[in-house]
């Protein structure tokens, strides 16, 4: 009798550029593309039994909160039938989707791994050819094998497998380089691919739990990044009536007392919750309509605000929600020397 393979659900959501055996490029843009695409990666069958679900096949910039909600609902619907979930995704917005799923899917007992092709050939991105060549023109192939293997392992978190790194989704940032790469913001990550996949010590292990899904999001959140010398008032003049939440990033400037007072008045008059993301050491006065965020990556902070506003409109509850470290999203202070 043959060995029993783990069952993995592969959700297609972009980032599927695959270099086939005959050097042709194939991608999944529609459900009908899945079968020939999977036929070209037969090696996945050696690791696990794969069952595909089509979610989205458009461009990275079109990935929206609606798609995050669809992904969360698909995972919930199929949760008990699979040992793990792998999601293909474009590079540009992968960290947003990872963060959204981290908040939407709570009490997780199985791995959810996002991955994607290293780059699309022919894109006029500086350094893209270098990356593609260094990955032996495999496209998504190498990342996918790693991601499927991770989805069979003793992990119960939302993660991103990219290159040799397995990263916690809420701690993943794009690295400032000419090539596409991701890194963990403050820690060592969830694991590494070297001669196999090795998980780090600090990770949530598999557990028998019933996943709780909170898929609601408020998409009408506006994010304003304050730069030194910028006029706060003129920034706020941009806001239309449809905005349901405002996130102000003041990581490069220190807000002064008049700024807080002005923001409090603005928030109160507009009945608009205003979230403040500031330098770690900066703490302003406690004002009823202003909610200070703990230190988080910018993408994660935005998604958390969207998610929190999807759960409640109560300022007290919003304050509680954003101050709870729900998915290990709070940044740890950097250790000395790092």
């Amino acid at each position: 009798m043959a060995i029993k393979r783990p069952k993995i659900c592969l959700l297609f959501c972009g980032g599927t550029t695959l270099i086939s055996r005959n050097d042709k490029t194939t991608e999944v843009h529609a459900k009908s593309d899945i079968k020939p695409w999977l036929d070209d990666v037969p090696e996945l069958a050696v690791i696990s039994s794969i069952e595909p679900i089509f979610v989205f096949g458009g461009a990275a910039e079109s990935v929206s909160p609606e798609i995050w909600t669809t992904l969360a609902k698909e995972i919930k619907k199929n949760y008990s039938a699979y040992d793990g979930f792998v999601i293909t995704h474009d590079f540009d917005s992968i960290v947003y989707t990872g963060a959204a799923l981290s908040f939407m899917l709570q009490n997780l007992g199985k791995p959810i791994v996002l991955t994607g092709s290293q780059d699309s050939p022919g894109l006029p991105v500086k350094g893209s050819q270098k990356v593609f060549d260094s990955f032996l023109r495999l496209g998504i192939r190498a990342n996918l094998i790693n991601a499927v293997q991770v989805a069979t392992m003793d992990l119960a978190e939302v993660s991103i497998m990219y290159g040799n790194h397995l990263l916690r989704a809420t701690q993943t940032r794009k690295t400032p380089s000419e090539t596409q790469s991701l890194a963990e913001a403050t820690g060592e990550g969830l694991g590494k691919a070297d001669f196999g996949i090795k998980l780090s010590e600090e990770h949530q292990r598999r557990r028998r739990t019933a996943v709780i899904v909170h898929p609601e999001l408020e998409p009408n959140v506006f994010s304003l990044h304050l730069h030194p010398g910028m006029n706060l008032k003129s920034g706020l003049d941009l806001l239309g009536p449809g905005v349901k939440g405002l996130l102000i990033r003041a990581t490069d400037v220190a807000l002064k007392t008049p700024d807080y007072q002005f923001l409090e008045r603005f928030a109160s008059q507009r009945r608009l919750p205003v979230f403040l993301s500031q330098m770690t050491e900066a703490k302003g006065p406690k004002l009823p309509h202003l909610i200070e965020l703990p230190s988080m990556l910018p993408e994660v902070a935005l998604v958390k605000v969207m998610w929190a506003l999807g759960q409640t409109k109560s300022l007290t509850q919003l304050r509680e929600l954003v101050n709870e470290n729900l998915a290990n999203e709070f940044l740890k202070p950097l250790e000395e020397g790092k």
Partner: peptide
């Protein structure tokens, strides 16, 4: 299974040895 999948995708020369009687563990049957 992981190493075999990698070997297939990266076209890596690979020797896969199994002791007589352990063939049931061979993931290549899939």
């Amino acid at each position: 299974g992981y190493l075999l999948a990698y070997a297939i995708s990266a076209k890596k020369p690979t020797l896969y040895l199994m002791e007589k009687g352990s063939q049931a563990n061979n993931p290549l049957v899939f």
